[in-house]
Design a protein around this nucleic acid. Structure first.
Lengths: 193, 193
DNA sequence: TACAATATACTAACGCCGTTAGTTTATCAG
DNA sequence: CTGATAAACTAACGGCGTTAGTATATTGTA
């Protein structure tokens, strides 16, 4: 068949769209190929294998997440910045749940470029916390705590683990964020000692 | 071939062992059958399908988790109980990471029995928090926050997402738990008003 | 004890999957 | 215009979960 000027970027873009519309666990190279009017084997002219494709998509997701987070905290300080950061993260997870799940499959690959993605995840968090007077070491721990809360909340809500009680999930989320801000304030006091 | 008195429980037990030793994403019905000296098709005499098997394993995991948690908090109160609860959860996640991952695949199934598992997850948390003077509504929110922190931390550490900084992951964990206890104390003050 | 029913195993096959090897063909560079 | 390269193809491999149909050993009952 005649070639159609398909690029690596086209393949990745189509994969992203397929994951968002069909769900991550319904994704397959064969159907992706079909969407591009190509046979599955031809995909290997553009990507090395499925893992590499996921890695590429993971980079995209992380960069998108970073973008909305940096936009959200711009011009804000302290609790306001942290709330805005969390809200942006939460909204991203709710609006693009299937894409969000790709992040988790990322770190399994042993790749140097992972480090870049790692710092892209951390940077907005560090930036949002910068208004607090914390030591570097505290910030390294606290960004892990922040990510734990956010990821844990988003993935469990998405999985349907929060349906047990008749209380609003949004209220639970607010409490989680409040807890992190309490921890920030408490850590600040500790640092000043 | 002659039958060998294989039971449904044997199949589930072998599946659990295979997941723990080979990893969840290396699990397959064909290899499970091989371990039981059976053909894959014969498994269907004992289980309806793979989803049902995962569900069954999920119940096992949740009951094991509940067991160690209840044991850990026995005779303890307030912060001490919550710390013991978190430690038991954390230890379980670190010691049996592949089995822990099964929990996440559980809620996708629409099953009434899920409710039972749901309460088994919640019960030890509610019990550990019972020493705090909280409203019922607060406790419903707070158990979600607790599960978010713990699940988020465990799954991200396991996925290798916490390798970026040269600070001890155990210390980050301690900080996360401290944050939750701060939130508990703060919520208690709010409730007393 | 003999027979019928049931439970447990089997073989064979279907339609997916990711991936590789080898081949053809269109485009582009010199 | 020609040769090289890039992008498509066909065919196949070994894996997967699952189903249909069949044989046989055990179990419960008459």
């Amino acid at each position: 068949m005649a070639r159609q000027g398909l690029t690596r970027a086209d393949v990745i873009q189509a994969a992203i769209e397929m994951i968002e519309s069909e769900g991550l666990h319904n994704f397959s190279l064969r159907e992706l190929a079909g969407r591009l009017h190509i046979k599955a084997a031809s995909l290997y002219n553009h990507i090395r294998n499925m893992d590499e494709l996921y890695t590429e998509i993971g980079y995209y997701v992380i960069s998108e997440l970073k973008k909305v987070q940096l936009g959200a905290i711009a011009g804000k300080q302290r609790a306001e910045a942290v709330k805005a950061l969390a809200d942006a993260y939460y909204r991203f997870g709710k609006e693009r749940p299937e894409l969000y799940k790709v992040i988790l499959s990322l770190p399994m690959v042993k790749n140097d470029a992972i480090h870049r993605a790692g710092f892209d995840i951390v940077e907005p968090i560090m930036s949002a916390m910068s208004g607090y007077r914390l030591t570097g070491e505290q910030m390294m721990h606290l960004q892990r705590v922040f990510r734990s809360i956010m990821h844990g909340f988003i993935s469990q809500e998405e999985a349907g683990c929060f349906r047990q009680f008749p209380v609003d999930v949004g209220d639970s989320y607010q409490m989680a964020v409040r807890g992190f801000i309490l921890l920030l304030e408490n850590s600040e006091k500790e640092a000043r000692k």
